[in-house]
Design a protein around this nucleic acid. Sequence first.
DNA 1: TGAAATGTTGGGGCG
DNA 2: ACGCCCCAACATTTC
Length: 470
Amino acid sequence: MTSIVLFRNDLRLDDHPALAHAAALGPVLPVFLSDPQDERGAAYQWWQRQSLRVLAQRLGERGLPLVCRRGETLALVSELVQESGATAVYWNRRYAAPQREIDGQLKEMLRVRGITAESFPGDILIEPWKVLRDGQPYKVFSPFWKRLIRDMVVDAPWDIPNQIQASEKVPPSEDPNDWNWEPRRPDWASPFLAYWQPGELGAAARLAEFLESRLADYASGRDYPAAEKVSRLSPHLAHGEISPRRLWQRVQAHVEAQPEQRRAADKFLQELGWREFSWHLLYHFPQLPHTPLRPEFADFPWQEDERLLGAWQRGQTGYPLVDAGMRELWQTGYLHNRVRMIVGSFLVKDLLLPWQAGEAWFWDTLLDADPANNSASWQWVAGCGTDAAPYFRIFNPYLQAEKFDADAQYQRRWLPELATLDAATLYSSDSGRWRDKGVVLGRDYLAPLVDHQLARDRALEAFATLKKQP
DNA sequence: TGAAATGTTGGGGCG
DNA sequence: ACGCCCCAACATTTC
């Protein structure tokens, strides 16, 4: 009579449809499976380890164990069904191709053996096969989102079950500490804890704080990386510590109480919409993480240059805003959205490096690494996505800095070597003025890796070669 | 959810 | 008072 409930990238009790369904039927055996196929970058795995601790504790408080196993999904579930005598397995749906395939095979294997197997809506607002126009997926964000908010109903979230009966038989668990997801030497991850509280409670706290004190200024403040007006919920969403349905419902309820924040809330929900759009794209176009959706970009003359890539990764390009962003990413596992666009544009257009190289670096270093968001956004920046920024939309890193970090607060925070420069000096190209403030180019800070004007022209030339292709 | 190049307009200085 | 020029400010187009 026992049901196994699988936890994967949905490390929460709230609005966990599979868990809620199983708990209503009888005893539950919660299982976390780590299939090597599902592993993401190093930063993501570190967070997942922290989040697992929280999940195990929350289950423990309710008298439930969390059985952790590492290996191939089908084999593990097969073993666990035998060891526990479970008669059903439930899970929340996943939408990326490899995971869909695994879960499909799992369902078939279980049903052949007479075990109930059922999947439930996963961590998006609406199932991708329900948002179509003339049977085709949307390829442009605006009509997609308009359609979704106008015509579709987001399911109400499931509350945490009041009581969850524990399974009598509990198979032994592996110790996730043995999985080596936490770096030892050097321990690059422990500083993250100064910025983040992984786990479902941390997610709830972040949301409460966002609604309370950040949302009101979100519409205008979200563009200024020093302003701290964004939600910083992305890692929590990426690990499923809060569901988008719950987030949607909480924001709607907040706006009912504070109608003057409607505009800001809509803007925020639109960002959730971009996440949704990315996941729908990944569902319909499984090649999204590797292959440009615009086929003509297959022939783009990217450069391969390890030296340039390394300089970008380490924040040593000589462009203060780019370097500040790359250092924030390395030190905190996160990067403000505006700065993601700027460093992305710089990699792809100023350095002419392939967007996949940036995608891979973000995948490894972002705590919120998410296959849909990461690949869709890089294709957007590179101009090769379906609804992408046109290739010729080339960010000027100096202008972006003056517009969105006018007082240089953000750049000085992440570039201690420039902390003595006031904004006016930072924005002047007069190296003598920099020297007067104690910063010698080439000694204290690098000269720019490339000249932006030249790089811009070169990028446009490279782009022009594409259009000649049939 | 750009930026640069190019075009237009209108106020003010000045002969 | 008038026309001319300059140029900032804004608008449009082009990449």
